Simulated scan of single mutants.
Amino acid sequence: MKDRRSNSKGRDTLSTKKGHAALPVGWQCKPLGECADFMSGSTPSLNNAAFWSGEFPWVTARDMKALRIDSTARRISELGKAAAAVAPAQSVLVLTRGMTLFKDLPVCIAEREMAFNQDVKALIPASDLDASFLAYQLLANKREILQMVDTAGHGTGRLDTQLLKDLPFAFPSLPEQRRIARILATWDRALVNTERLIDKLHAEKNALMADLLTGTRRVSVRHKEAMDAA
C-alpha cells in the first residue's frame, strides 16, 4: 500500500509501507528487465573474409567512448550483418564483459542500426521509455552497477545480465523523461565545448611558451625597468 508524503523541499512523493525508497509522484519503479528487452551480441566468423571490410558498423568496447555513436573502427559486410546480432537505432549499448568494467561502465546510444559483439548487451527500451533517459539513468547508477561486476574465469570483468535485469529502475512519464534528457544533453554539449576550448588554450599556451622562452617572440621592456634590472 502506498501513502503520500512530502520531502524536505515540500514536494509530494510516494513511499511504500515496506520502507522502499520514496519516489516523486508520477514516477514508477520496475526491474530494468521489465523496462527494456536485452539482446546479446556476436562476432561473425573471423575466418570468413566475406563477412568483413564492409560498411556496416560493428560495435566493440573500443568504440564505446562517447554517449552517442554512429560509426565504429571495424565494419562488416551485408553478409556479415546477416550473421551478426543487430540492434535497432536508439538501442542503449552496455559493456558487460571486459577489463574496463573494473574501473568504468561504458554506456552509449546507437544512433543508427548497428551490430555488436558478445562483450556488449543491447537494451531496447519499451515504448514508455526514452533511450537517452535510460542511458543517463544507467550512468547515474554507475557506482551501484559496478559493484555487481565480478571476475570471469579468464580474469576479465563480467557484469551478470540477470543482476542488471533485476536492477530497480525509476522513471517518470515519457514527456518528462524526454525533457530531462534534453536538459542533460545540453550540459553534455557545454562540457564538450569547454573541453575543446581548454585543449585549444593549452595548445596556444605551449606555442607561446616555445616562442617566448627561445626569444622567437620578444616582449617590450621599458627603459626604467631595464635599468632597474641592471
Results as ranks from 00 to 15, higher is better:
Leu174Phe: 12
Asp119His: 15
Arg189Ser: 11
Asp188His: 07
Gln162Phe: 03
Ala122Thr: 03
Glu195Ala: 13
Trp187Met: 05
Gln118Tyr: 10
Ser173Thr: 15
Arg182Ser: 14
Pro106Gln: 11
Cys108Met: 05
Leu164Ser: 08
Ala110Met: 10
Thr194His: 10
Asp130Tyr: 09
Ala115Asn: 07
Thr161Pro: 01
Asp128Leu: 06
Ser127Gln: 13
Asp128His: 12
Glu195Asp: 15
Leu134Tyr: 12
Phe133Ala: 04
Asp119Lys: 14
Thr151Asn: 04
Ile180Pro: 05
Leu139Gln: 15
Gly153Val: 05
Pro125Val: 09
Val107Asn: 06
Ala110Ile: 08
Glu176Tyr: 00
Leu123Cys: 11
Glu113Arg: 12
Pro125His: 09
Lys165His: 02
Gln162Thr: 10
Ala126Ser: 15
Phe116Asp: 05
Arg182Ile: 00
Cys108Ser: 08
Leu146Trp: 04
Val120His: 07
Gln118His: 13
Glu144Arg: 11
Glu195Pro: 00
Thr194Tyr: 07
Thr186Asp: 13
Cys108Val: 06
Arg143Trp: 03
Glu113Thr: 12
Phe116Ala: 04
Pro175Asp: 03
Thr194Cys: 03
Ala152Phe: 04
Leu159Gly: 01
Arg189Ile: 05
Pro175Ile: 00
Pro168Cys: 03
Ala181Gly: 08
Leu167Ser: 02
Arg158Asn: 09
Lys121Thr: 08
Lys121Tyr: 10
Ile183Thr: 11
Ile145Tyr: 09
Leu167Thr: 04
Glu195Gly: 01
Asn117Ala: 01
Gly153Trp: 03
Val149Pro: 06
Ser173His: 01
Asn141Trp: 08
Ala126Leu: 09
Ala185Val: 00
Ala131Thr: 11
Gln177Arg: 03
Pro172Phe: 07
Ile124Leu: 14
Leu164Asn: 07
Pro175Cys: 02
Ile183Met: 11
Asp119Val: 07
Ile145Val: 08
Lys142Asp: 09
Arg143Gly: 00
Ala122Phe: 08
Leu167Cys: 00
Arg189Lys: 13
Leu163Lys: 14
Ser132Met: 11
Arg143Asp: 14
Leu164Lys: 07
